[in-house]
Each structure stands twice: as C-alpha cells, then as structure tokens.
Design a protein around this nucleic acid. Structure first.
Lengths: 207, 207, 207, 207
DNA sequence: GATGAATGAGACTTCATTCAT
DNA sequence: AATGAATGAAGTCTCATTCAT
C-alpha cells in the first residue's frame, strides 16, 4: 500500500543489483587469479562476504557466471569493432584503429581486478586472462578474419595470418597491462608496426 | 614384463624405469586431453595399468609429475637452441633456424598424444598444450630475449618484441599441428616472414 | 475460494482463510506426488503462487502442514465412523458400512490430486497416499479394534485380525483408485466378502 | 612372490568383504529406521565407523545400496517360492506353504536389524520395511498372480485377490515380528485361516 | 501480512594421498 | 616396490527457515 514504485528502486532491489555485481566482480578476480578450473564457487562467494547459498540465487553454476562475464565483455566491445569494420578503412588504418580500441578496452577492464592480484604469488598453470578478455579476443579474431575474406589483406594463408595478428596484439597488450603507467599509445604503435612490417620495420632497427 | 634382459640388470630396476616412463607418458596424454586442473592422478595411473599407490613411488604429487614433464621437454630442446645461439647467425638466420627447430620438435612431440584426443569433444577452458610444449616455449623465449640483449636485434622495446615473436611462432605452430598433413616447412616460412616483415612482406601481398 | 462470507469478515481475514486453504491443497497434492520426504516447502508454496516466506505465516514447518492435513482428514471422517459404531450393527453390517464409508471418502479425496499426477513417471519409493488418507486409515483401525474389544467379533487374535481387515480394505481401496472408472460398489463387495469369508467365499470360487 | 593365493583370503580381501557387509547391514538398519528417503549415505557410513569416502568404494549411491539389499533378499527367497509353485499343490496347501516360507524367511531376516531399532522413537513417515522384505513381497505377489492365472484359484477379481492375500500376509507378519517370542507357527495358522475363510472361519468365532 | 533474498547447515560426491599388506 | 582400499578435506548444491522491507 505504501509503495508505488514504477522502477525497482527499493532497498531490496538495490541490494540485489549490488550483490549480483559483487559476485560478478569477485568472479572476475578469482578467474583472473586462479584460472577457470582452479577457481571454485566458494572462492568467489567468500570474497563477497555473502553466504554460500546466495551464489545460487544469482547463478546456477560456475559455468554460468563465467559465461555471464564473457558475454558482458563481448557485448560491450563488439559494437566498437563493428563500427570500425563498416567504415571501409584500408588495412593499415583498420589495424591501427582496432588495436587502439582493443588496448583501450582492455586497459579499462583491467583496472577492476589486476590491482588486487598478488604479483609473483600466482598459481602455476593459469592463463592470466578474464573471460571478458577472452570474449573480446574472439571478436577481434572475427574482425580480422572478415577483413581477410573481404580481400583487403594480403593473399597469404588467412588462418595463420589472423592468428599471428591476434597473437601479437594480445601479447603486447598483456605486457602493456603489467607496466606502470599503462601506456596504450606506445604499445599500440609497437603492435601496429610489428604487425604491418615485422621486426625489420620497427623503429630503431639497425640499418 | 615382456622385455628380456641381456645384462644382469635387476628386473626390479628395469621395471622402475619402465614404470616411471609409463607414468610420464600417461601424464602427457592426460594433461594434453584434460588440462592440468581437470586431470586427476587416477586418470593418469589408470592409463598405465599400475595401482594408484604406485604413482607415489615415483612422483610425490600431481604437481611434481607435471614439472617432470616440463623439465623433460626443456632438457631435450634446450641443447638445440643453445647450439643455434652459439653459431653467431645473423638475426634472420637465427630466427629461421629457431623456428624450424621449434616447429620440428613440437610436431614430434605432438604425435605422441594428439592422435588419441577425441577431436571436437574437448572440455571448454583447456589449452591443448602439453607441459613439455610449455617448457620449450619458455626456452625459445629465453633465446630470443638473449638475442635481443646481445644486440643482434633492433633496438625496439625488447620485451614487446620477444613476446611478439614468440606469440607468432606459437600460434602458427598451434594451427600447423591441427592440419593434416602437418607441414612444418610452409608453416615455418610463414612465421619467419611474418616475424621479419609483417603482413606487408608476406608473399602475395598487394603491391 | 468458493466460500461466501455473510458477516463482515475483513478482506484480510478472508485472504487468510484462502491462503491457508491454498497451502493445504497444494500440500496435499505435493505430498501425494512426491511423498513426504521428497516434497519440499518450495514445491508446495510454488503451487500456490504465494511467496516462500508466506508459508511460515500459516504453518511453522513442513511437518506441521503435514500434520494439519492428516488432522483434517481424520476430523472429517471420524464422525462418520463414530456414527456407525454407535448403531450397534452386527459385525457383518458394521464391516460393510465401514468399508463403504471408507471407500467413498477415499474416492472423494483422491480426485483432488490424482488427476494431476503424471502416471508412470513416479519416483521410486513413494507410497501414493495423502496424509489425509493415512489419517482415515488410522481411524478405521481404531474402530475395528474397538469392535473387537467390544466382543462383537470373533475371539481370535485381535491384533492380527484388525491388521488383516485393515490391510485388505486398504489394498483393495488402493487398486480401486487406480482403475477407471472408480467403482466403489464392486470394490466394497469384494473387500467385505474377502474379510468375512476369505477366498473360499468369494463369488466364483470353485465348488 | 611370497603369495600364491588361489582364493582371495588375504587380510585385505577379508576386510573388504567385511566392510561390504558392514555397509549392507548398516544400510538395512538405516532404511528400516528412517525409510529410504530420510536415510542418508552419511547415516549409513557413520554407523559403520568407516570414513565418508569409503562408502563409494563399494556402492555408487544410496540407490545402488538399496538395490543391492533388495536383490539380495529376492535372490534368496525366490528359489523357495519357485520350488513351491512347481509342486502343483492345491490352493490351500500352496497358500499354507508359501505363508510358512515367507514368515520363516522374514523372521530370519528380521533379527539382523530389528533388535537395534529404538521402539517408539521412530521417525514419522516411515514404512518399517527393509528393501529385502519389499523384494520378497514382490516375489510372493508374482506367485499368487501366477496361481490365479493357472486357474487353481477362484475366479474372483485377480488383482484384488492377490493384493488382499499379500496384504494379510504382510500385516500379520509385521505384527508377528514385533512380538516376543516370535511365533511363526501360530501367525501362519492365523494368516492361512484368514486368507482362506475370512474372519468368519477363524478359530473361536462366535457360533 | 506478504514478499523473496539471505542464510547456513548439511547432503552428496570426488580425489589426492596414505598405509597396511 | 606394488597394491588398492581407506581416509577425510573440500567442492557443489539444496532447502528449511529467517528477516528486512
């Protein structure tokens, strides 16, 4: 009687949204620190301070929260790439723009968990990558393969080429994220140059 | 058991060596199929026909057998690389030789487990790589970083560059291993060209 | 739901009555379908459309709603039996009347949940009986034991006899409820004849 | 080398057999006391003094141990009944022999668990019957239905009749088992008389 | 009173590791 | 050394019940 809410803004709804986010955040951290396999639902829920059973009010399993995380990342990054692809840039420009967008996204994403990661203390056998990053990686791969298919790229082995470009972007990005300050501009410069011209074309190459 | 000893090698010792190797082989397969976390000691030991407890006569833990596997790979590959580095090749030649050696080793290693792996049926979240491969990868990385430090490479950001070269080699290698027949020569050609000259230098590139 | 209040019964009170009845109805169904142990409070409350917590405004526990259900059945059936007993029927007539009343009650009770029960799909280990039925069963048992005590029955072992009569009535009743159409008259005929004269006295018995 | 055992009689095998039996015994008790649904694997294993995980070395689940128990009972009792049926007794004799065999079997079975059962303290909602008994019950039912089908019984409704006979036997048996001393002879006399002639034919019936 | 998310005990099960034989 | 059953910690998940709104 006393409440006529047109949007769910009650304290209950607020808590619910917060909890869902808290679980998502905790999951991102835990997956980042331990990797998917080693991470347990308990690890995740413990970090939120919530009760064990509460996890299951939000996600049915570890798999589901992982997927939610990945979907979230893909959902936010895909439009950016789509936009780029529709502009008909020449390959060089496309590569540059895609790399810049990717590095920027990753840098944003990164701050939410990397800070808390105890460097040097990491578990063996982990891949240091959040599911969101994995999803974005998949998007980038799609875009590059698309570019190759459209003929805006050299005729070399498409599969090898896409894999190589992605690999360079990813690895450089990973290193970039480990440095302080995070310098996306110079990292992007490096990656673009490396992809387009190899080590022979890098600035400072011997004569 | 079926093996005849021509020298007074105690049956006991011979069995020990065989068992140790059997466990290592089984572990390679299992880690390759399931990934480190999902693999269980039971999975490994079941494949050998030995009893569960016997595993612990040879390795103290799952972790230790994993490490042993990695060491094994590194131990066999490191000398090859060392040899290359001592020859004072120019960068281009070194890159080529290293890639060829790496791809060759991986292809050899690969056949020992890939055949049994049910394609398409793999778990999500596993990385299709034996610990031995991971170890060799680390060796290659060392070598490249060494080359950079020795000045035989461009002056660009050494860390980014090593990471990029490795990344390309690894990704191309992974794809190479998935194709039939496995063609190390053309894969190596591609990787070398990509590393040295980027996509602009690939054969078939637009004018 | 169908009940009209002629006196100023507050809306609140009416809802209360309705909710209480809805829970009871749902519980009858759920216990019938799943058995007491497998049934969960959530199963019950879900069927009412009410919220989980609301259950506890009416019953303190799963146990309590079960008991309420049983009491309800007993409360409705006991007077019928009491009436019969007070009439001083001879044993045969008493048996017949009691069986008829019992079968009739069970048939009525049965329709309220059996229809929804997915035949053939039932869990193992459940006993297809609502708590109300169980309660009525207990009443019948009381009556028969009373009859024996009053001397209106043979002098044979009273406990065995009561148990036997009840057992026949119950089993025949169960089967009756599984047939379509439900034929209480012929089932009652059978049960009475079986109880009074055994298989030797059944119609169609060999000479 | 030191052991050439033709039968598994080592201490290990002995322990294994004992544990398997201990679990079976504990399960029989627990199912008897709590009923299938309420019984937990923990209840069973706790009673054996074994570790939690040990249960799963012997049975994969609660369901499996239940089935094992039931199979055990059926396996031992079925031959007895089969023997009876093959003798072509007239119905009366068959009923008597079957009842006697059934009561005898149940009495034997019973001592292994009933003694420990805390009378009066029982959980509500249980059916006081071991799976072994349930299995034997099913066998008896088969036999009776067979007898009816062979025409050695009255022409009355076969289903009702089988159910009634079984019900009487079962209930009388249950009561018999609760008394001390257990007197199978007089219980069998009662049950046979009740089945064949009803309460009218019981000894001591009023004129 | 109704709501429904939070709680946390406890069930089931797996598995690395130990240990008696 | 080999064996393989026993162990028990730890993980996943359910559900009766509570409680803030």
């Amino acid at each position: 009687m006393s409440q006529v809410a047109y949007l769910p803004v009650g304290k209950r709804e607020q808590t619910k949204v917060q909890n869902r986010q808290a679980i998502l955040d905790a999951a991102r951290e835990v997956f980042g620190e331990l990797g998917y396999e080693s991470a347990t639902v308990r690890d995740i829920i413990r970090r939120t301070g919530l009760a064990a059973g509460t996890f299951y009010n939000y996600y049915r399993s570890k798999e589901e929260v992982f997927t939610a995380l990945a979907d979230d990342g893909a959902r936010r990054f895909a439009p950016i790439l789509k936009g780029l692809r529709s502009k008909g840039y020449p390959l060089e420009a496309f590569v540059r723009e895609a790399i810049v967008a990717y590095f920027g996204f990753m840098a944003d994403e990164h701050v939410s968990w990397a800070a808390r990661r105890p460097a040097g203390e990491q578990h063996p056998h982990i891949q240091g990558e959040t599911p969101e990053m994995a999803a974005v990686y998949a998007e980038v791969k799609d875009a590059i393969e698309g570019a190759i298919a459209e003929g805006s790229s050299p005729l070399a082995d498409a599969d090898y080429m896409a894999a190589s470009c992605i690999a360079v972007a990813r690895e450089v990005c990973d290193r970039m994220l480990m440095r302080r300050p995070i310098d996306t501009a110079s990292a992007a410069d490096f990656a673009v140059s490396m992809i387009l011209n190899g080590i022979g074309g890098l600035p400072g190459a011997r004569a």
